[in-house]
């Protein structure tokens, strides 16, 4: 078996009294497209945020590309990494948010070049050329100089995907990327994500778009109350769920 890109082992996370993740373990293989489904509060978004270290886990460990995230083991103890180290680890993942979070004071092109220029310190003309290519890839060549407020929700989310890709991540994390969109704009974002999946990008997608999961996902993971209840091929989990809770969720959603 190939080495997993992400190895999640016995991860728990609480927000005060609320236990968001309960002893979760999971592997993501290189090139795999994984869809996380479940009701709100089931822990799927938290799991994504822990991989990107926007949330720190309470116990357990997450390895990305063989490297332990957020902490360093020394003398039988764990020591938190510095902000700089965590920033470096974050560059291996790209994050797409439910509410886009584009920088409103920068144009579409500037949103994409900001990370490569400021964080990675790469050459300006090279970064610019790549950003223009990324905009073409998400179908927004004409919008390079538009500010986010001048773009529709679907266009903003596509710019956000290009912004994440500009950092050349090994893994793309999508946190309900179409939930804040008007229904007629969902398709254009999903089309970009499908193209990305076909290109071989490793992806973890928290979504309520079961059609997308059925069509694109190599694996579907159903979570409930902070735990993984069922996982497997999309056709199995969505078509013939074994667990009662999965069946209840699916019949409520469809």
């Amino acid at each position: 078996m190939t080495k997993p890109l992400v190895a999640i082992r016995s991860v728990s996370k609480s927000f005060g009294e609320f236990q968001a993740l309960k002893n979760v373990s999971l592997d993501i293989r290189p090139g795999e497209v994984m869809c996380l489904i479940g009701a709100s509060g089931s822990g799927k978004t938290t799991l994504l945020r822990c991989i990107n270290q926007l949330a720190a886990i309470d116990s357990g460990g997450i390895w990305l590309d063989g490297e332990l995230l957020g902490v360093r083991e020394q003398g039988g103890r764990l020591h938190r990494l510095s902000e700089r180290e965590i920033g470096r680890q974050r560059l291996k993942t790209g994050m797409v948010f439910q509410r886009f979070n584009l920088f409103p004071h920068k144009t579409a092109l500037e949103n994409i070049t900001e990370g490569p220029l400021q964080v990675q310190g790469r050459k300006s003309d090279e970064v610019r050329a790549e950003a223009i290519e990324l905009l073409r890839r998400v179908g927004l060549s004409a919008k390079a100089d538009s500010y986010p407020a001048q773009l529709s929700g679907g266009q903003q989310q596509r710019v956000a995907i290009a912004r994440a890709l500009a950092m050349k991540p090994m893994l793309m994390l999508f946190d309900e990327p179409t939930s804040a969109l008007d229904p007629e704009l969902v398709g254009e974002v999903l089309a970009v994500m499908k193209e990305l999946a076909r290109s071989g990008m490793s992806m973890m997608v928290v979504t309520h778009e079961l059609g997308f999961a059925r069509e694109v996902a190599d694996r579907v993971v159903y979570m409930d109350q902070g735990a993984i209840i069922e996982q497997g091929r999309a056709s199995d989990v969505l078509g013939a769920p074994r667990e009662e809770r999965t069946r209840a969720f699916l019949s409520a959603v469809i």
């Binding site: 926007l54 470096r88 900001e114 990370g115 912004r163 994440a164």
Partner: peptide
């Protein structure tokens, strides 16, 4: 979300403040 987006592209706290948060 602006802090989070800045962090997600690898920015530290001070750089995120200077480049993203303070201009807004």
């Amino acid at each position: 979300g602006q802090y989070e987006a800045a962090q997600a592209i690898g920015m530290g706290r001070l750089r995120a403040l200077r480049r993203i948060v303070l201009p807004q």
